[in-house]
Design a protein around this nucleic acid. Structure first.
Length: 570
RNA sequence: GCUCCCGUAGUGUAGUCCGGCCAAUCAUCAAGCCCUCUCGAGGCUUAGACUCGGGUUCGAAUCCCGACGGGAGCACCA
């Protein structure tokens, strides 16, 4: 038995020594030995001694000898294997295949952004993982926020992300049911109608003081509730009887229902008493069969309230989980920040390519699959972090690169006359490796357009190459740019530049930069680059994403022959 | 102010629940080289982290205590 463990210790001491310059470290070795062998009746002390001795012995050998011996004993330990990272979501606690139900509950008050994408993708993905069901529920319990157009707009955004759902409904469809639960709470003495001034409520909550309404009889409570519903009292709310001295201030008798006299986009003026998030969220998750509701961290303090309500009503409790909000550097997600920019005309709308709205991302050529991969790479931890948009770009580039056509675009174009240039009809393929993407043929003469900065780098007499076409020697560089044909054969070390013939397409490319630097709006966040693209570009359709060589990936909009580009990234 | 949550390379992230195959994963970024008729992609290499201080233990990124730092809540918004 001791022999066995000695042998193991020897092997790992050798491995450790080989890995770290001939010096084995007993601490590391003992760990491995215990991990592989298990303790099996040995005390850690014994193993420690054995490992220590093994290290001493091994360290006396030369590195070459160590390697040699390890090769004989356990050659597989010689190669350091690369660990693979698995980017799928971690397993869901308390989950059973076929029985998981998740939900995405947006308020129909705006367009979806990347934060919503994270939530919905996580919800959807877990339902998929467990062959469960995924519900989309519009949390439209505040008629002051809900707007008709957003119900469909949000669904459209979700579909674009590749998300589908098993069930869709509105919380506002269930108000009657919410009323029944409210009544039950009042009857049980777990809720009461309060007509205190909002400021007074706030004060009491802060100081942990109860108000008089808290102690009214149930009979009276029901009456007052009915009055709330029929409009005969105003300024009333229904509050949960929590604990006004609870350390968690969310439990200091939170409001469950309030009066909002505003026409609802779906329910019209049918109701004037509306449940709050605390109430509606808990009730809906429970009665719709959701097993694993996710929400963002800022609700964490409300968990207690969520469960208290379900407790009082004897309703099933879902397994509630939280994760951190997603924030991206320089790209605010909140309506509070975006809305003023739109109102002041600083961005064009909710689909401005500088915005992290799904429509904005789409506009600049970010693919839904890239967003999904990005979300998976972020995971669902509670650590708050600010991500660089570069991570989204990197994911997008990996998807785009093998499938995007390569085309020529010349920004800041200058005219170049090439003397003695052979007239050609040149076939140039759309992709450097994937020939299946096809090719275009370009008819060339002696007039070209090239980028002015490229030309600045060249002196008279220099030879450069019009990529995929011919070499050109610079003859003149003053008012006019004149070159001379210098052969067809590729010169490996020559500068290869993109070009167009005089048969070009005028195009503006909008390059989005960070909207904010720190807290300040970046006045130069949208750069407009004008240039000429090769004629082929006029054949592109809206939403085509191509790469302009040495420029970057660009999404095209072709509106009745007028071409605009939106820069995605390099 | 009170309460809660969180602290791993420049930025993200795995590992933390259940201490030992962790002198710590992967991506991104940066630097360098190779490859390429793009400044893209690909390949290779290098650099870079467990917030700090105590404790428990043969052994701590992991458990305990404390400090510090960041975030959130204290709405008749969600």
């Amino acid at each position: 038995m001791t022999d066995k463990i000695k042998k193991i210790a020897r092997i790992y001491a050798l491995q450790n020594a080989v890995q770290f310059n001939g010096k084995a470290e007993p601490k590391a070795v003992i760990g491995k030995v215990i991990a592989v062998h298990g303790k099996e009746g040995f005390s850690p002390k014994e193993i420690y001694q054995i490992s220590g001795a093994a290290c001493l012995d091994v360290n006396r050998l030369s590195l070459a000898d160590q390697r040699h011996e390890l090769e004989k004993l356990a050659p597989e330990l010689l190669v350091k294997e690369k660990k693979e990272r698995d980017f799928s979501l971690p397993p869901l606690p308390n989950a059973e295949k076929g029985k998981v139900v998740t939900r995405f509950p947006p308020e129909p008050n705006g367009y979806l952004h990347i934060g919503h994408a994270k939530a919905s993708i996580v919800d959807y993905e877990y339902a998929q993982m467990y062959d469960g069901k995924f519900i989309i529920r519009f949390d439209d319990t505040n008629p002051e926020n809900a707007e008709l157009k957003f119900y469909d707009a949000q669904k459209k955004d979700l579909r674009w992300l590749g998300i589908s759902w098993n069930k869709e409904y509105n919380t506002s469809d269930n108000i009657q049911e919410h009323y029944k639960f409210a009544e039950q709470l009042i009857k049980q003495g777990n809720a009461y109608v309060c007509t205190c001034e909002p400021n007074f409520v706030k004060e009491c909550r802060f100081e942990g003081r109860e108000c008089n309404h808290r102690h009214c009889e149930c009979e009276e409570g029901i009456d007052r509730w009915k009055q709330m519903l029929d409009g005969s009292i105003n300024g009333a709310v229904l509050r949960l009887k929590g604990d006004m001295r609870c350390e968690n201030t969310a439990m200091r008798d939170p409001t469950l229902f309030r009066i909002i006299e505003k026409r609802h986009p779906l329910q019209s003026d049918k109701y004037r008493v509306w449940p709050t998030y605390d109430f509606a969220g808990a009730i809906e998750d429970s009665i719709s069969g959701v097993t694993h509701p996710f929400r963002t961290k800022e609700y964490e303090l409300r968990d207690e309230c969520y469960f208290k309500i379900l407790d009082f009503l004897g309703l099933r409790k879902p397994y509630l989980m939280e994760f951190a909000r997603l924030s991206i550097e320089g790209m605010p997600v909140s309506k509070r920040k975006i809305k003023p920019l739109i109102d002041q005309g600083k961005v064009s709308g909710f689909d401005d390519p500088r915005l992290p709205t799904l429509q904005g991302l789409k506009k600049r050529g970010i693919l839904p699959e890239a967003i999904r991969q990005f979300v998976f790479s972020q995971g669902i931890s509670k650590v708050e972090s600010t991500v660089t948009f570069g991570l989204v770009e990197a994911a997008n580039r990996k998807i785009l690169d093998p499938i995007s056509k390569r085309l020529f675009f010349v920004s800041n174009p200058v005219k170049l006359k090439v003397e003695k240039a052979p007239h050609k009809i040149k076939d140039i393929s759309f992709h450097p490796t994937d020939k299946k993407l096809g090719s275009r043929s370009i008819k060339t003469g002696d007039i070209f357009y090239v980028n002015a900065e490229d030309m600045k780098k060249l002196k008279i007499g220099d030879i450069f190459r019009l990529k995929d076409l011919i070499n050109v020697k610079i003859l003149k560089k003053n008012n006019e740019l004149i070159g001379e044909y210098a052969g067809d054969k590729l010169i490996a070390e020559s500068l290869k530049i993109q070009w167009t013939t005089n048969n070009f397409v005028k195009i503006n490319v909008y390059v989005p930069h960070l909207l904010f630097t720190g807290d300040k709006y970046n006045e130069n966040s949208l750069e407009k680059i004008q240039g000429y693209a090769e004629e082929q570009v006029s054949k592109l359709k809206t939403d085509d994403i191509i790469q302009f060589e040495r420029f970057g990936f660009v999404r095209i909009e072709n509106i009745k022959g007028s071409i605009t580009g939106f820069f995605a990234h390099k």
